[in-house]
């Protein structure tokens, strides 16, 4: 009989299969009897839309309640700090540069001064 070309690999895997089957856990048919737990979880999931809707209503109420409450504007709420009339600071210490009026030709030297005969 002609040997199968993959007999070497088949023998290896067959040996591994025998080892694994000795170590395999026992069959437990009770694992297939889990329907009640599934029902409990589905009841739990059925609450989710209701809980989500309630959370949305609460958030909306908080948001709308917050926006309807009129808070005073900041500029109105702060006390007036500078009520003094507008004017120059330190006016008494030196003459104001704003008050100085230079003559139109005060930078020109004398010989540049034109004299009209």
């Amino acid at each position: 009989m002609k040997p199968h070309p993959d007999d070497d690999l088949l023998a290896r895997f067959e040996h591994a299969r025998r080892c694994d089957r000795e170590d395999a856990p026992a069959w437990r048919p009770e694992l297939l009897e889990q329907r009640p737990a599934a029902r409990r979880s589905s009841v739990l999931w059925s609450w989710h839309p209701a809980a989500l809707a309630a959370a949305c209503v609460i958030l909306l109420a908080v948001f709308l309640g917050g926006s309807m409450h009129d808070e005073p504007r900041l500029s109105e709420a702060l006390p007036p700090l500078f009520e003094a009339p507008a004017g120059e600071l330190f006016a008494s210490l030196e003459p104001s540069p704003l008050a100085f009026e230079a003559p139109s030709d005060f930078l020109l030297t004398d010989h540049f001064t034109l004299s009209i005969p």
């Binding site: 299969r17 694994d20 089957r21 170590d23 395999a24 856990p25 694992l31 297939l32 009897e33 889990q34 329907r35 737990a37 599934a38």
Partner: peptide, 28 residues
Amino acid sequence: FGWALHCCAGDHARAEDVLQNAYLKMAR
């Protein structure tokens, strides 16, 4: 179990977990 063992790189504990979870999927 042998297939689960291969999928879990020979880790027996993980293979048992995988097979158990697969059975639970079927049951549910």
